[in-house]
């Protein structure tokens, strides 16, 4: 079946102690592993693989790579051929290049960020297990995020020079990785410029998103919550923990998601995201947002610009 879902994100942090405190006490993740290089691995309570987030010590913020999990090991051989046929160089990393993880394909997206594909990661189980499970465990802390849901990458877009790596990424994800386009933002004369795109490999509204920007980078890593009430409670947790909230609880027009945006202690943006507003079946017609309704797509209630949301990223 190919790519199943996001597997993990690897983030650079400038203060490991503060970062671990944030991802455990605010998001509710658990540390599952540390390596000799000082990298810390974490997972959410409802995830079954060993980790979904890697924190690496650095002198700056940002993303090292994002990895997606394939169903079968043989998918990696198929994708290696298809990615190379698309004109992108692929390196193969042996099993163990990341602990508890099988072999990986490593390559650069058209927008420049590093992406990896893997098929094997150590199974450790969810906090509630698989036999007669309770709906939630008793040891939830903070927001109690269920899983790492998706990421949004800022992608170089310069209409004057004709560079649009949003569109380049969309072509790559559709043609090579078999994702489907779910929603998009079209701007410019006649709506000729695909300025943002939301794609899925599952039936969720998105598994990855791309937004045009002067330079490429990480906009956010998103964590799934069950309901609007969980989003409100997550904001309470953030207030208690003095987390810098970028956008207080609201709803997106795009994806219909209920959301909060906030920053980790190194300035990497996080989202808590609830409400799978619809199932993005592969034959669902693509939703398009036009330039004049762009901000309604982003923040549905106000429909007004929040410049920090589009201009601030790592």
């Amino acid at each position: 079946m190919g790519v199943m879902r996001i597997g993990h994100a690897s983030l650079k942090v400038m203060d490991m102690g503060a970062a671990v405190k944030h991802y455990t006490e605010v998001l509710g993740m658990k540390v599952t592993m540390e390596d000799k290089a000082g990298n810390v691995y974490l997972k959410c309570w409802d995830e079954w693989d060993r980790y979904s987030l890697i924190l690496t010590p650095s002198d700056q913020a940002g993303m090292n790579h994002v990895a997606y999990k394939c169903e079968k090991d043989s998918d990696l051989d198929d994708f290696k051929k298809r990615i190379e046929a698309h004109g992108i160089k692929v390196a193969e990393l042996a099993e163990g290049a990341l602990p508890a993880t099988g072999r990986m394909l490593q390559f650069k997206l058209p927008s420049g960020q590093e992406m990896r594909l893997f098929a094997q990661k150590e199974y450790v189980g969810t906090e509630v297990g698989t036999t007669n499970p309770d709906p939630w465990p008793d040891n939830i802390t903070g927001a109690g995020a269920h899983w790492v849901d998706h990421c949004l990458l800022m992608c170089e877009l310069n209409p004057e020079t004709g560079v649009n790596t949003v569109a380049d990424n969309v072509a790559f994800f559709k043609d090579v990785l078999d994702f489907h386009l779910v929603e998009q933002v079209l701007v410019g004369p006649g709506g000729a410029i695909q300025a943002a795109a939301f794609l899925a490999c599952t039936n969720k509204p998105h598994d990855i998103a791309f937004v045009g920007a002067p330079t490429s980078g990480l906009h956010h890593v998103s964590f799934f919550l069950d309901s609007w009430h969980d989003v409100l409670k997550a904001a309470d947790v953030m207030a208690k923990k003095k987390v810098k909230i970028d956008v207080a609880p609201t709803r997106h027009g795009i994806t219909r998601g209920e959301t909060i945006y906030f920053f980790d202690p190194s300035g990497n943006r996080n989202e808590t995201f609830a409400g799978l507003g619809y199932l993005s079946m592969r034959d669902r017609p693509v939703t398009t947002w036009t330039e004049d309704k762009l901000w309604s797509g982003i923040f549905y209630h106000t429909g007004e610009a929040t410049p920090s949301f589009t201009d601030v990223y790592t």
Binding site: M14, D59, A61, S266
Partner: peptide
């Protein structure tokens, strides 16, 4: 105002007069 946590760089300033004390790490990318 950006991330307010030293990572995004939008609040970059140059101190022209006076002195400051460091409160946390500043991204070398910025």
């Amino acid at each position: 105002v950006g991330c307010v946590n030293g990572g995004c760089g939008v609040c970059k300033v140059k101190i022209l007069a006076g002195s400051t004390e460091t409160l946390g790490p500043v991204s070398r990318a910025h």
